[in-house]
């Protein structure tokens, strides 16, 4: 044994040496470093989770924005449709009214014309008797008794009016 160098004090010295080394390393290196590495792992995991969450939030908010945009677009479309419809309706109404007005106008105009014509005819008729008598006086060279021939004249005029009316 001694030839190999076994020596009890040395052995004990090595044992103590190792235990001291173990103690110092545990307290000053292993524990703080392991805690540090665990902290770092925790931190990295948290950051990754936070990043994930942020990404999800971004995605969801983008979705929301998209949705809002769609909503707005649809609403705009709807408004536009409504407006177009209203315009259409308005135009139709206006046209209808204009046509009615025009019709009314035409009717009135026609009525006016009729009345004017009637008046004119009346006037012509009233004048025509005298004119005819005057013309007849000239033709026959004498005065006719208007009273005596009034019936005849009226008859002629009636015929003329009938004739014209047809």
């Amino acid at each position: 044994m001694t030839e190999l160098g076994v020596n009890v004090p040395s052995l004990i010295a090595y044992l103590i040496n190792f235990l001291i080394l173990l103690g110092i390393l545990s307290v000053f290196a292993y524990k703080p470093l392991v805690r540090l590495m665990d902290q770092r792992a925790e931190r990295i995991r948290e950051s990754l989770e936070a990043a994930d969450q942020a990404r999800q939030e971004a995605a969801s908010s983008r979705e929301a924005v998209e949705e809002a945009l769609n909503e707005a677009r649809q609403q705009g479309q709807r408004l536009l449709d409504q407006t177009r419809e209203a315009a259409e309706r308005y135009r139709a109404e206006e046209m209808e009214r204009a046509r009615q007005e025009a019709d009314a106008f035409v009717l009135r105009a026609r009525a006016d014309i009729q009345r004017e014509r009637d008046a004119a005819i009346e006037e012509v008729r009233s004048n025509f008797g005298e004119l005819a008598i005057t013309a007849a006086e000239r033709v026959i060279g004498r005065t006719l008794d208007p009273r005596a021939h009034e019936d005849l004249i009226a008859q002629v005029l009636e015929e003329g009016a009938d004739l014209r009316r047809n």
């Binding site: 160098g5 020596n7 040395s10 080394l21």
Partner: peptide, 28 residues
């Protein structure tokens, strides 16, 4: 050889101390 019980600082023990100190410095 040193014998079984006699205490002395051997060159190997000294170098183990050196190694210990180097390890401690390295890790600390």
């Amino acid at each position: 050889p040193l014998g079984l019980t006699k205490f002395a600082v051997t060159n190997t023990l000294l170098s183990s101390w050196v190694a210990t100190i180097v390890i401690i410095i390295f890790f600390v």
